[in-house]
Design a protein around this nucleic acid. Structure first.
Lengths: 147, 147
DNA sequence: TTTGCTGCAAATGTTTTGCAATATC
DNA sequence: GATATTGCAAAACATTTGCAGCAAA
């Protein structure tokens, strides 16, 4: 756990970014909330407990930085704000199931898409470098409640 | 062409929505720009030529209405504004190739995904009702310029 | 000590809303 | 004539930016 945070800090340090307490605390928030898809405001709320004087602008700037470095993934679920998650390079491709009732986001991994990606690129004269797949529907819980 | 506009107006009329010139002119803008992915501001610009007194708020309200009725699809390409396109029920599933250089959006249709959709739903206890797929990369033109 | 970072407040850009006036049915 | 719809201006909301002060190296 601590080792993971350390590794990330080292990664920043290697690129000559300063290791400020604000950056540490934001990174820690992601380490502690691995499965979440956090918005800037979410992070701000979490981080304010440990570091009450942090400014929202700093959160935004840090998220930008971490996303540029590839440490975070910036995603858009269509709810009007960006959300961020740890860019776990092990699980290379993972996608999202978005519940239209409660808004909960589940993840799923799938490699079948790489095939599709290649084929679509060839057929359309397009060099595909990334893809994003979202399925919309109802999670089992909401589906049960509705029935 | 005119027939298509008529059909849409009838659809509004049947649901007791008033056929205002503003609504007609906005619908016409979509009929005339079938292959585009238009933002509210885009529509506002187009429509202002025929109806200079229209307000931007009316454009937003009309787009909301048409999207709710299923006449338009509201989409988010991550460029900070919603974009709308005709919901052409013939081409049931079509997806987007987004050029990371010039921002142009090409479409492609694919039915292979329905399979995937079913399988993912089953494996994750999720009732999938829609999906959205975006491929990011470089269109042939930009790819050529870069090489 | 030097520069990069921060917090604050103001600015930005898109979308929404309150309200009085207006136009459709 | 009743009520939905409009235009305008202001508000809301997420995000960005300018800048003076501060802190990591």
């Amino acid at each position: 756990m601590t080792g993971e945070l350390q590794a990330l800090l080292t990664r920043l340090h290697e690129k000559d970014y300063k290791l400020t307490p604000q950056r540490k605390v934001i990174l820690k928030a992601f380490v502690d909330n691995k499965d979440e898809h956090l918005s800037a405001e979410d992070i701000y709320g979490i981080v304010k407990e440990q570091y009450p004087d942090i400014g929202l602008a700093t959160v935004y700037r840090t998220l930008d930085l971490l996303a540029e470095l590839g440490i975070l993934l910036r995603m858009n679920f269509g709810d009007g704000r960006f959300r961020y998650e740890f860019s776990n390079s092990d699980v290379h491709q993972h996608h999202h199931l978005i519940c239209m009732e409660c808004g909960r986001v589940q993840e799923f991994a799938d490699d079948l898409l790489e095939d599709l990606e290649r084929r679509v690129g060839e057929e359309n004269g397009f060099r595909v470098v990334d893809h994003q797949v979202k399925f919309y529907g109802y999670c089992s819980e909401c589906d049960r409640k509705k029935a």
